[in-house]
Amino acid sequence: MDRLEDDERPLSPEETLRLIEEQQARTSMRLGGDPLMIYTSWGVAWLAGFGALFVHYAYGSITQNMALAVLFPLMILAMAISSFAQRKGAAGQVRGESSVRGTMYGFAWAFGFACMGALGTRLSPLLPPDESGLLWGVMSMTIVAVLYMAGGAIWRVPMMFFLGAGVAVLNVIGAVGGPGLHALLMSVGAGGGFAVVGVVQWWRQRDRA
């Protein structure tokens, strides 16, 4: 009750509009979850995982299977961390239409990766080892890019959409350029980009809090 009197002070139209805009932005940000867990976890997974693949292609000091054994568990971990962050964050306190949408979106990830697993298992024995690695890398990043773009469209978060579009562009360039270039672009471009975006968003969220 301490600040009730002060809270009742009427605002000027300018102050009112600013308050509405700031509160809308703060709410959207908080509903989006902790950016360090949502974005940076993916960034670190790609930075390390595709970095390991690049080391394999460029220097041959580790095997491809070792690199993929770094990449995929880290991606699964990132997926688990980001969905945990969504559930534990402000969005986890919301029920109704948006939580149904979130559940469907979560299933889309699982089904996407299941399709990738089936296709990759079927096709990779038919390909030379480096091309097989490229196939796994391009397929996994296609799912990420498309679902990030879809997520941005569903929740009207332009940054999420553009991050997905950025990954898609790098993925296309990498797929055409070959395994080494793809691994480098995904590690430094997508991984580094997501890691930085997560930290910057977290910093902005802290300032707004």
């Binding site: 809270d7 009742e8 009112t16 308050l19 809308q24 948006s98």
Partner: peptide, 16 residues
């Protein structure tokens, strides 16, 4: 038109 209630309304509206 009071800061606290305006913030409550804005937040609930932003939920969709």
């Amino acid at each position: 038109h009071a800061q606290a209630r305006l913030r409550v309304m804005t937040t609930l509206n932003a939920l969709g």
